[in-house]
Design a binder for these strands. Structure first.
Length: 299
DNA sequence: GCGTCCAGGTCTACC
DNA sequence: GGTAGACCTGGACGC
């Protein structure tokens, strides 16, 4: 089954997909030969539908559901809303582009349709993955995420798995997560979060529609163990708030290289982006990743 | 092959 | 509020 989803003006599918490292974490999968991104959608528990996205034309995204001639109206609605959520299609970036017009070094942003950061179907998946990026190499992050999918996700095709639900993780022991997922000291944090969600003690999915001021939302995100300033700042970006930078060691090095500085403090970086107001986190990230936009597949 | 060192954020205890 | 040390893994390095 094939259908199309309308894209907003200035939208770039591949610059959105490659906006950060999420596209290389399962269950996302990129086929560079066919230029197709595969993601999974769950219209109901246990019903997992792989969806293939590619460019149809400048204004539309091609959506293919392999091996299916049709889907129910509920399934189609869920697929459309999940794709729009992950690709940030319904968010308004007009004031961001207007702000970028004022700075010569950011004129490329609007022209190339950059700015939308790919996110997972659920906040839970984004948060667990973000914890898996802390204090380790990218290789270890991919290993932990692969293990989460393969050992606790649901197999939807041969050797292909969805991301586990909070229930699936909450049903494990800390020892299992340490040993089988190789999540190390992060294991109790992820287990505690999963158990709190299952017990309705916290509703992190509501963060995407929260009306709280960014500072209060940041504090709420920080209340989850394992989410420090770096992780919470980046989670906020995936919630559509760009008031925080989310600086890590890679960002510090990129900033130093771009601005030809030997040493910079985080406070210096914060001050540098202060003039960009509520969009500073996005301008910060785009400046650091500008060289990715020279290629369709930067990594 | 084995042991040691190091990098990478966050938490906790302490000042 | 700021700082030190522990947490855990995998990679690099020396032997």
């Amino acid at each position: 089954m094939i259908f199309a989803i309308d894209a907003p003006r200035n939208f770039s599918l591949w610059y959105t997909i490659y906006s950060h490292g999420w596209c290389s974490l399962k269950p996302f999968n990129i086929d560079k030969e066919t230029a197709v991104l595969t993601m999974v959608v769950q219209p109901s528990p246990g019903n997992i539908i792989p969806v293939q996205l590619s460019e149809l034309n400048r204004k539309q995204i091609r959506v293919q559901i392999p091996g299916k001639k049709s889907v129910s109206s509920h399934e189609k609605k869920t697929i459309e809303s999940t794709v729009k959520t992950c690709l940030r299609l319904t968010e308004d970036y007009s004031t961001f582009y207007a702000e970028g017009k004022q700075y010569k070094q950011f004129h490329w942003v609007r022209k190339w349709g950059a700015g939308r950061l790919l996110r997972a179907p659920s906040v839970f998946e984004d948060v667990v993955k973000m914890i898996c990026t802390t204090n380790c190499s990218w290789g270890l992050t991919t290993s932990m995420v692969n293990n989460f999918c393969a050992k606790l996700g649901t197999e939807y095709d041969e050797g292909k798995y969805s991301f586990p639900t909070p229930e699936a993780i909450a049903g494990c022991t800390e020892k299992y997560i340490r040993k089988e997922i190789r999540a190390g000291y992060r294991s109790p944090y992820i287990l505690e979060l999963s158990k709190r969600i299952v017990a309705n003690d916290i509703d992190i999915e509501s963060w995407r529609s929260s009306t709280l001021p960014s500072g209060e939302l940041f504090d709420e995100v920080r209340s989850v163990k394992g989410l420090g300033p770096y992780a919470a700042g980046n989670i906020l970006k995936l919630l559509g708030r760009y008031d925080y930078l989310g600086i890590d060691s890679w960002c510090r090095k990129q900033f130093r290289d771009i601005h030809k500085k030997k040493k910079v403090s985080d406070k210096f970086i914060e001050r540098y982006y202060q003039p960009f107001g509520k969009w500073k986190g996005l301008f910060f990230w785009l400046e650091l990743t500008k060289d990715w936009y020279d290629k369709k597949f930067p990594f």
